[in-house]
């Protein structure tokens, strides 16, 4: 750092100290925020500038907090950044009053610093957004993939919503693991709630059925809508000897029969006994 720059920088730091109440008031007016909200940030900025080495950790922490609380109040990230930028205007008034060459040169440096801090609030906002989106995607993956037990030795996966390749893969891996954990020899994959499938998803379903067979379990696919049946045939996907049933109930009845469990419907039959012969 040159001697000039160092002096200029010190001048700005002094101004921030001597005219603090005035700058803070102007800042809060321009930024349309309460002075209390900004005071802590202002102090942190002054503190880090007063020390050598540009340690802006505290300032960044407070900015992140400000960015979050403003986002909650419904401000756009641009609003928050603009509020930070308005500090330049407030400081400039003091610089103008001072009128010295050092103060003016220092203002350029200060302005660049504030630009960085403003951009940082936008970055914080984007990072927070991204985290929310990622959390939700993960939750969706967890939530939407239940594997339920229908009967001793029979489990079902009711798939709901649009299937993409990643989700199908996760569900299928989970299903296979549950077959092992529960010792279930039958699984029903119900796709009643699935509006459409593409080639990749259909392939994943098929691979799962084949993999289950390799492990010693049988899968039935149920709830294929007319549209999906049409798509599968049009795409030329070969389902081979994989059992498909129209409804989950049909699939359950089928798997029960396969496991050797039989149901008889209760019938009320009248037996007429002829008494004449007796």
């Amino acid at each position: 750092m040159t001697v000039h720059a160092d002096v200029a920088r010190r001048r700005i730091t002094e101004l921030l100290g001597s005219a603090d109440e005035q700058i803070l008031r102007r800042w809060s007016t321009i930024a349309q925020a309460s002075a209390d909200e900004l005071r802590e940030l202002y102090q942190a900025l002054r503190n880090s500038l007063a020390h050598e080495g540009d340690d802006l950790t505290d300032v960044r922490g407070l900015l992140a907090e400000l960015s979050r609380s403003r986002a909650r109040q419904g401000y756009t990230p641009s609003d928050t950044a603009r509020a930070v930028y308005s500090l330049k205007e407030a400081v400039y008034e003091s610089v103008e009053d001072d009128g010295g060459a050092d103060a003016l040169r220092g203002f350029i440096w200060f302005s660049r610093l504030i630009d960085d801090l403003g951009l940082y609030t936008i970055e914080t906002f984007a990072t927070a957004r991204e985290k929310v989106i990622m959390d939700q995607a993960e939750q969706l993956l967890e939530l939407s993939t239940p594997v339920v037990k229908l009967w001793e030795g029979i489990v079902a996966v009711p798939l709901v919503g649009t299937l993409d390749s990643a989700r199908t893969q996760v569900v299928m891996e989970k299903l296979l693991q549950i077959l092992v954990d529960t010792g279930s020899e039958h699984a029903v994959i119900d796709i009643t709630g699935v509006p459409a499938v593409d080639t990749q998803v259909a392939q994943h379903l098929l691979k799962t059925v084949v993999a289950a067979r390799l492990m010693g379990a049988e899968c039935v696919i149920s709830g294929i809508s007319p549209q999906i049946a049409h798509t599968i045939v049009t795409l030329g996907i070969e389902f081979g000897d994989i059992v498909t049933k129209a409804t989950l109930a049909d699939a359950l009845a089928y798997t029960l029969r396969c496991s050797g469990i039989e149901f008889s419907e209760r019938r009320h039959t009248r037996i007429a006994v002829r008494t004449e012969d007796a």
């Binding site: 296979l176 390799l214 492990m215």
Partner: peptide
């Protein structure tokens, strides 16, 4: 006792066990 990861890999590899019978455990 074939593990799920092994079964999925075999399917991807394109290997069938040629009519070998399998059971979960």
């Amino acid at each position: 006792g074939m593990r799920p990861a092994v079964a999925i890999t075999l399917v991807e590899l394109g290997l069938s066990l040629g009519g070998v019978r399998t059971a979960l455990n």
